[in-house]
Design a binder for these strands. Structure first.
Length: 577
DNA sequence: TTTAGGG
DNA sequence: CCCTAAA
């Protein structure tokens, strides 16, 4: 998500070195090294898989309770670090920076109960026979925690004893059976918890080791963005769930037919193992030799904390939730596996060695989970939440999977339900779907088809990234970052405000700024998409003007300097003569 | 890799 | 968003 944390990282130096200030070379190098030492592709597969399933995320009404305790805790932590909230007051070399004072500290000042918004559709669970339809937060949703802060932002906490499960498509598509979909419970797997949050200051050590996710992210960035195979990229899946099955090309539907046929009969059959021809449970489950069929029925999505201004639109809230979920799933989590309550750490073990075989019953106690890829997850309370710069962070705890997913050697396409009714469906996301199917099916297949993979890679190579319109919150963050950093340091802007938004590259940010400037210049009637508050556009214009002028001045100074030098040289020369 | 701009 | 020349 987005964050505002520019003050500490850049507030000072940036003005002394408007155009050159960068992270030390060593730091940058370190990052690039981390990129290389990765081999996380396998993890990515799993994450992709899960993430796709996560598309079915929805909230069950009546079960989202408050978790004020944590908020209070955060509050307390925050108060212990009040000095961090004070913006530094840098001394600008050339001219005052009019934006310096623009950061107002935010803090939790009071906690109240209240209802936030009942009509937050897009993520709730409508229930009924159309199990996968994403409807609205039901009216009976319990009051969420609302934390007012100084300016007043609202913290919506969806969590506590609730949980989110993701119904498998089998249920959705052909069964219509209602799976409970709740917000997840933070009391389980607390130890996996991890903040998804920006680094706070350069002095305060990152409490959550992020090596793992950074590695993943960087790999993706360096290897998959540009040409090559994007199939391992985390991006495509994000909108998969938005698509409706019925609009798939006929060809692709075969997967669904197969799946639903196989699953419909008994969707309760969880990770039940099926034995090939000997003990077949039905024609569709006949497996060839020692294959294990798993079906992950659902999994929980971590607790999400969302802080959003009261004045924000419902749409932006939805987007934030989506983004939070996306971030959570793509950001440094890997899949954990437990067999009969025991964690299986050795990735090299075969399923059989692990006890996952058709010959025993362990499959009933198979548990998948999402865990931070970093070694030692920190406690939530170790992260001071209240910081002037992090207004928009979704705080997520890790999760546990219940199980889900039919993994067969050929048809394990992830089931994308018609969980829609969501206007976020875009042409692009439609385009991505088939890709997802290929991807996912290939991932759960035995590593035997090479030609097929390269085919896919070619197909992927030309794949355009999903279009992801900037939310107002993101625009806010961008504007603020640019106000502080200027228009020529997109890498820093990215690091400052979008470090944890994997899908936003510095090029994206630059492009967005470009369009923002343009948008701000045209009449409101000509603007499209989610309207950006005029106030923000004004800031865009101001910042753009300011930094442009700044650039000009810098240029002029350089020219002057050069002229002086040449002049003095000339004079010198003349004197010598 | 990052910046800067055109497509 | 993509592509890419330049730095």
């Amino acid at each position: 998500m987005v964050s505002h944390k520019c003050v500490e990282e850049f507030g000072y130096e940036s003005y002394l070195l408007p155009s050159n200030a960068r992270a030390p070379r060593s730091a940058r190098k370190r990052r690039s090294i981390e990129k290389r030492i990765s081999k996380e592709d396998d993890n990515m597969c799993a994450i992709d898989l899960l993430a796709t399933v996560a598309g079915h995320l929805s909230f069950e009404s009546g079960s989202s309770l408050m978790s004020i305790d944590k908020l209070i805790e955060d509050h307390r932590v925050k108060e212990e670090f009040p000095e961090e909230e004070k913006p530094l007051m840098p001394v600008a070399l050339s001219g005052e920076n009019p934006y310096q004072g623009s950061l107002s500290p935010c803090g939790f000042s009071s906690v109240i109960n209240g209802k936030v918004e009942n009509e937050v559709d897009g993520f709730s669970y409508s229930g009924g026979s159309d199990a996968c339809q994403v409807g609205n937060f039901s009216d009976d949703i319990k009051p969420d925690a609302v934390v007012l802060d100084a300016r007043p932002n609202v913290v919506v906490s969806l969590g506590s004893s609730s949980r989110t499960e993701v119904p498998s498509i089998g249920n959705c598509v052909s069964h219509g059976v209602r799976d409970d979909v709740n917000l997840f419970s933070r009391d389980d797997d607390e130890n996996f918890s991890e903040y998804i949050r920006p680094r706070v200051t350069k002095n305060s050590p990152r409490t959550v080791p992020r090596i793992g996710d950074r590695r993943i992210r960087k790999i993706l960035a360096s290897r998959h963005w540009k040409g090559g195979s994007r199939h391992a990229d985390t991006k495509p899946w994000r909108n998969y769930y938005l698509h409706q099955q019925r609009s798939y090309p006929i060809k692709k539907r075969k997967n669904f037919d197969h799946i639903s046929d196989s699953i419909t009969d008994d969707y309760r059959m969880r990770t039940k193992m099926h034995r090939g021809s000997r003990k077949g449970q039905g024609a569709s489950f006949v497996a060839s030799d020692s294959h294990v069929k798993l079906r992950i029925k659902s999994f929980r999505v971590p607790e999400l904390f969302i802080e959003i201004p009261e004045t924000a639109t419902v749409g932006s809230l939805k987007r934030m939730v989506m983004e939070a979920v996306s971030t959570l799933l793509s950001d440094g989590h890997r899949v954990g596996l437990m067999v009969q309550g025991k964690k299986v750490r050795d990735d090299n073990k075969t399923l059989h060695q692990t006890g996952i075989s058709q010959d025993n019953s362990h499959l009933d106690s198979l548990d998948f989970s999402l865990e931070p890829s970093s070694e030692m997850p920190q406690l939530l309370t170790s992260h001071p939440l209240g910081h002037a710069c992090e207004e928009l962070l979704p705080v997520c705890q890790a999760t546990k999977i219940d199980n889900v997913l039919e993994s067969d050697h050929h048809d394990s396409a992830l089931f994308l339900s018609d969980s829609l009714g969501n206007n976020n469906v875009t042409e692009d996301s439609k385009a991505m779907i088939p890709v997802a199917l290929n991807e996912l099916s290939s991932q759960s297949q035995p590593p035997s088809r090479k030609s097929r993979r390269s085919e896919q890679q070619q197909q992927q190579a030309a794949q355009r990234r999903i279009r992801r319109p900037f939310s107002v919150a993101e625009v806010e963050a961008l504007v603020q970052a640019v106000e502080k950093l200027g228009t020529g340091r997109w890498r820093d802007v990215k690091l400052c405000a979008f470090e944890d938004a994997d899908h936003r590259t510095y090029v994206d940010l630059k492009d967005k700024w470009k369009t923002l400037v343009h948008t701000a210049k045209i009449s409101p009637q000509q603007r499209r998409g989610e309207p950006v508050p005029q106030e923000l556009l004004n800031r865009v214009l101001n910042a753009h003007g300011y930094w442009t002028q700044q650039q000009m001045q810098q240029l002029q100074q350089n020219v002057n300097k050069l002229e002086q030098e040449t002049q003095s040289q000339t004079t010198e020369g003349l004197l010598l003569l």
